[in-house]
Computed example of a mutant assay.
Amino acid sequence: MSVSPVKPLTGAIESGVHRFAVRVYFEDTDFSGVVYHANYLRYMERARSDLLRVAGIDQREAHASGTGVYAIRDLSIDYLSPARLEDDLLIETRVTALGAATVSMVQAISRDGRLLTDATIRAAFLTPDGRPRRQPADWMAGFRRLMIQP
């Protein structure tokens, strides 16, 4: 019997918004069945990593070649309503600003169209030794394309 390879789902960019779906599993929740607060940050990190992948940015290669890596410089998060076990969540990410060595984004987590959590994030592009570095020009061009709303 031949088994087809199963690949992780990937998000999609539509009208400048990256959409990424996740499901809440038992391991994501606390003793009350509500998603543990730090896991919202994990969901957002997955969505940002997927946004980079969908935009053609190879983080692993950038790290291996010494080009650089992104690190969160600052983050503000607002928890509005809890997510629970078995919920299907949608993480939407929008690029809002771009600097020579930074990219700012807003992210929202919703369930069935209801906003549960939102955040503003600024990531800095760093050298392997942790110093700010200009983002590669093609990466910046990709982010600029995401900022353009039709």
Rank of each mutant, 00 (worst) to 15 (best):
S76V: 09
Y70N: 00
V22T: 06
L51G: 05
M105Y: 05
D112Y: 02
G130V: 10
I148R: 15
L51I: 08
Y36P: 01
S4W: 04
G142W: 05
G16A: 08
L116Q: 08
V34G: 01
M140Y: 01
H18I: 06
L80V: 09
V95W: 02
R131Q: 14
T10A: 11
E27I: 02
E61Y: 00
R42F: 06
Y79V: 06
D87W: 07
T29R: 05
A124C: 13
E14T: 14
I91C: 15
E61G: 02
D87T: 11
P5K: 09
L52V: 06
A64P: 00
V54E: 14
V17F: 07
H18E: 01
T93Y: 04
R23A: 08
T93C: 10
F31I: 12
I57W: 07
D88L: 15
E92H: 06
Y40T: 02
A64W: 01
V6Q: 09
G16W: 02
L52P: 02
S2W: 03
R94Q: 11
G66A: 05
A71Y: 09
L51A: 04
A123Q: 13
E86C: 04
I13N: 03
A124Y: 04
T120K: 15
R46W: 09
D78V: 13
T10K: 13
F125A: 03
G113H: 10
F143P: 01
T10M: 09
V3G: 11
V95D: 01
R144Y: 05
A119Q: 09
A141I: 04
I148L: 14
R42G: 05
D88F: 11
R133D: 03
R73D: 08
D74T: 03
G142Q: 10
L89R: 03
G113P: 10
P8W: 09
D28K: 02
D58Y: 06
R53M: 06
A124L: 10
R19G: 10
V6N: 04
A108T: 15
F20R: 02
A108L: 05
F143A: 14
Y40I: 00
L89P: 04
I109F: 01
P128R: 14
M147F: 10
E86F: 06
S65Q: 13
V34T: 13
D58H: 01
A62I: 00
R23G: 12
R94I: 03
V54D: 05
I72N: 02
M1S: 12
A64Y: 00
I148M: 13
L51P: 07
P132G: 06
L85G: 06
R144E: 15
Q135H: 13
T117S: 10
A97W: 02
D138P: 02
H63I: 13
F26P: 01
L116G: 03
P128K: 12
V54T: 14
A12W: 04
R23T: 13
W139I: 06
R53Y: 11
A137P: 00
I91K: 03
R133A: 15
R73C: 02
